[in-house]
Amino acid sequence: MTAALLAAGCSSTGGKKAAERESGAGGGKGVDTPRMDIAMVSHSGDGDTFWDIVQSGAKQAAVKDNVRLDYSHDEAGPQQAQLVQTAIDKKVDGLVVTLAKPDAVGPAVRKAVEAGIPVVTINSGAEHSAKLGALSHIGQDEKIAGEAVGAELNARGHEKALCLIHEQGNVSLDERCAGVADTFDGEVDNLNVDGTNMPDVESSVTAKLQSDEDVDTVVALGAPFAATAAKAADATGSEAEINTFDLNAKVVAGLKDGTIGFAVDQQPYLQGYEAVDALWLHAYNANELGGGRPVLTGPAIVTEKDVPRLEKYTGRGTR
């Protein structure tokens, strides 16, 4: 009876079984250097897809480099600084930190440097990194990424763009929109939406597209919001092309079926991986990456053409 019920309740399509049929991410054998402790402290909020990928990259490098990685995060500047302080207290062998809120986190980072802990900054805060005494900065310049988007929008012949800010007051999101506005020949309107409330994102984009029919492209600043913007555009019958920063499996599917025009990838996996690896290289071989300048991991414009290459990586959460 139960067996029959169970069988009736099964899905012959999709699900975990289908994914298992085609999966297969590999591990790797590590180095034989002594165990290192590295702390990674980011300004990520809870449940952020992007930081999940950064973390995967860092973990991969940690496995290879015989590193014990301790990841923590807090979106509030002062709390992030406290997390850095706990890493100093634990006398870690290396620190990876983001500088999205340089005023709050900067002093703690300087303390770490003074305590003799090698520091690599990632993602945001390129201009503050060297001043605080960090070895290297690995990330994407948000302004440059925005400018690349503006240029691509020009090439695609757009005239009015909507920049979709999913977290009001986030400096790097503002920089992205500012970058777009700098190089884009057309007009750019910003729209603030509540990123933790998907139906609100959808209805706000719908409202905006209904009230302003000149908008012919929407630029989402995070991958999860691109698919929602596409849904909203579809519902209003708007011809606006949806483009986005960052990748995830749904964005790649959107690129494939044409609901999304292009995406700007900053390779978050690389930021996590390279940061841990750079600290290992510093300990092992006194290497310093970047020569005092930021090492850029983006922007790379990704279109439909790149889909076959990327699909399996976004599926397993590393691109």
């Binding site: 699900g15 994914a19 449940g47 995830n248 749904k250 397993r316």
Partner: peptide
């Protein structure tokens, strides 16, 4: 929400179920 999703799906968002019965 976060812990279990990460533990079970491996990422912070769920997998698409749109192709399921």
């Amino acid at each position: 929400n976060l812990g279990l999703t990460k533990q079970i799906s491996g990422t912070v968002s769920t997998k698409s179920i749109s192709d399921m019965e």
